[in-house]
Design a protein around this nucleic acid. Structure first.
Lengths: 207, 207
DNA sequence: TGACAAAATCAACAGTGTTGATTATATTGC
DNA sequence: GCAATATAATCAACACTGTTGATTTTGTCA
């Protein structure tokens, strides 16, 4: 292995250990505890060293935001093999909610915290969201081609369904509010129960 | 006016000016600019003086959270006179979204930012949310009594509808994402258009 | 005017993101 | 192996942040 190659590899590994430390801190102590100094302490380097690998703190958050989108897209692709379009769309929603509830801190960074959004606003165009959103629109379109959701537009329904899933996720993550709170006896699992209600709604919307 | 009475009045006025300054800073420069020192500068007092009127910074945020809930409840009560239950429920949703989009910073404090939620978690029970949520459940229940939404529960539908409105509001406030982005030609107004889609969904759910 | 209470300020602590200057380390050419 | 160089890491400081115990100013009443 050549020198520049090893240097490259060490750089990547250092960046990864910084990202891991940041994510660990977020999970263990909440976002306000994710400080450059605490990350440095965790990886046993001086705070200044972090700046040799990331431009600033928001760049670390933005990188975590990108990693989160890769994880989400992977999960969403895994259900694309389901043949029936309506079942596929429901599984799409289930995958989205599962991701949010299993990775609440990633979801927070991706969709709630302002850091990554601010970075996106001032940086160049970024394809991550469009890719994930495109998949949702594709699944909705194929439902419509199969005769479901007549009278609605792809864009309109995509927005409404995404908003609903995002609302459920956000109320859970930021306010600790879950459906179980209002309907304990039937709710063994938030994801399944929310999707059951959505399924009822969608079945009435069918044809 | 007696001495203690005037003292009381001055205390209330000082608290209000602190709250106003905090809200102004939030609206003008974003939440990260709401600092005790900047509030103090704005009202031309020393930072320490703030602590004579509020226990800590989160108490200021919590007070704004409470004021926001009063404003929201007022708005929601104003549409309770609509006689038809389905029209009333739709107006309820419209009022909620309008509040969120017209008072994005209040909405942020009430439903997204962690400060007030954390205060709620450690403090005694607080009736604000239950009151607003109770009104939604009441309107849904009256729709069901009129024959709408058969096969769904009040709690389930309330959760789904709230989540959807909350999702729309949060995507807008935190990510600048609005329906218009995906469907410009028909969208002159986010509230009306979102509600139109919801109306279509609900009409298919009727009976 | 003097005594007392209330209101406001001060100075400091520990924490934050960030950076220009400095030191330590590792690799290269000889 | 040693000096020169390039890279990596650290240091010390700046301007912020929330918060608080001690101190000073202000206002009221006898």
């Amino acid at each position: 292995m050549g020198l520049t190659e090893r240097r490259q590899k060490e750089k990547v590994e250092m960046r990864q250990s910084i990202l891991d430390a940041a994510m660990d801190l977020f999970s263990a102590e909440g976002f306000e505890s994710v400080s450059i100094r605490k990350i440095a302490e965790k990886i046993e380097y001086h705070p200044s060293t972090i700046y040799l690998y990331f431009e600033d703190k928001d760049s670390i958050i933005f990188e975590l935001h990108n990693i989160g989108f890769l994880k989400l897209f992977d999960k969403q692709m895994s259900i694309q093999t389901i043949p029936d379009p309506l079942e596929r769309l429901l599984a799409h929603g289930r995958a989205y909610l599962e991701f949010a509830l299993e990775n609440p801190h990633f979801y927070d960074i991706m969709f709630i915290l302002p850091n990554a959004a601010e970075k996106l606003r001032i940086c160049a165009k970024w394809e991550g969201k469009d890719r994930a959103y495109g998949l949702l629109e594709k699944n909705i379109r194929e439902c419509m081609e199969a005769g479901y959701f007549t009278g609605l537009t792809v864009e309109g329904l995509a927005f409404v369904l995404w908003s609903m899933m995002h609302g459920i996720a956000t109320l859970h993550i930021r306010r600790g509010i879950v459906l179980e709170e209002f309907y304990r006896e039937q709710a063994n699992n938030l994801v399944e129960y929310s999707l059951d209600i959505l399924r009822t709604v969608i079945q009435k919307l069918m044809k």
